[in-house]
């Protein structure tokens, strides 16, 4: 049973990490807690579903399509909402409130377009295949989720550490003003970041929609709660932290469900978050991040 639970934890943790990636990226670069990320994640799911069922697109095309759709929404949010707020030097809570509004709009638009019912990917596009390793049931999809989460994380990490773009982004994360003075196209990079973060959210939506096979307009909300917990645990704006925090939360939840009581899952997640913050005021793996927008 333990091995199976560890695999369950790894999948769940990767799912959390994948969701938190884009979330933490936006916070790290734009210093905005983007509460529409849950809705963007949901949009990704629906976009892929629409492409698969109406256009008969193969799954990988649908995934790319979902990334483009979600990314475009992220970009639009940045250009239409966040950029004007930056220009007006809005107090730092204001962009967050704006993203709540965006989230409400996306959710109700999805309900209008697709209805409130739970939708699924058709059976035949699901990557089938499951096998046994000892006592453990493994599904190909689970492997794919874990692999994609780690892969995307690695790519993002390499870009941030090794490329010119990454250096520029890190400079912005330290101080947008200084970066601007250094001749970095700050606005342009904000747009790119918003696009990439939302695209990551979108693909997370597709993978989670595939794995748990339930797409609803409201699927982003519980994920958003967990995402917040993850990026706090991992340190806000920290890419590596999103992975570590996601896995940590996944393991904590599964293990507490398995060995304490399943009522405890959420209580453990948030109780732990609460306690960790008391002991380590800037998260488990975070460094002190003191930047005001």
């Amino acid at each position: 049973m333990l091995e199976q639970q560890l695999l369950n934890a790894l999948t769940l943790g990767s799912v959390y990490a994948l969701f938190a990636l884009g979330f933490t990226l936006v916070f790290g670069v734009l210093a905005v807690i983007n509460l529409s990320h849950g809705a963007v994640f949901m949009v990704g799911s629906y976009a892929a579903l629409a492409m698969v069922s109406h256009l008969n697109a193969p799954l990988w095309v649908a995934m790319l399509g979902a990334m483009v759709v979600s990314g475009t929404i992220g970009l639009l949010v940045d250009v239409l909402v966040l950029k004007p707020l930056r220009a007006r030097n809005a107090p730092h809570l204001i962009p967050m409130i704006a993203t709540i509004g965006v989230g409400i709009m996306l959710t109700s638009a999805a309900q209008g377009l697709f209805g409130a019912e739970v939708l699924r990917f058709p059976e035949d596009v699901m990557p089938a295949g499951e096998f046994m390793v000892g006592d453990v049931h493994v599904r190909a999809l689970e492997i794919a989720i874990v692999a994609i989460a780690f892969l995307l994380m690695a790519v993002l990490f390499t870009i941030l550490k090794r490329t010119q773009l990454g250096r520029a982004l890190r400079a912005i994360a330290e101080s947008p003003k200084a970066a601007y003075l250094l001749g970095i196209n700050v606005e342009g990079l904000f747009h790119i970041t918003s696009f990439v973060a939302a695209a990551l959210g979108g693909i997370a939506g597709v993978l989670i929609g595939l794995n748990f096979n339930a797409i609803t307009p409201f699927m982003g909300q519980p994920m958003l709660h967990k995402g917040i917990a993850v990026i706090i645990l991992g340190g806000m704006g920290d890419i590596r932290g999103a992975l570590i925090g996601g896995l940590f939360l996944g393991f904590a939840e599964v293990i507490s469900k398995a060995y304490l009581s399943s009522q405890m899952g959420d209580a453990v997640a948030f109780g732990l978050l609460f306690l960790i913050l008391l002991v380590r005021p800037s998260g488990l793996f975070g460094r002190k991040l003191e930047r005001k927008a």
Partner: peptide, 19 residues
């Protein structure tokens, strides 16, 4: 269209009156 407009009003107010 109620919640759609509700969300839009929130965004617009914040956008034009950020304080």
């Amino acid at each position: 269209f109620r919640s759609l407009v509700n969300g839009a009003v929130l965004v617009l107010v914040v956008l034009f009156l950020p304080k």
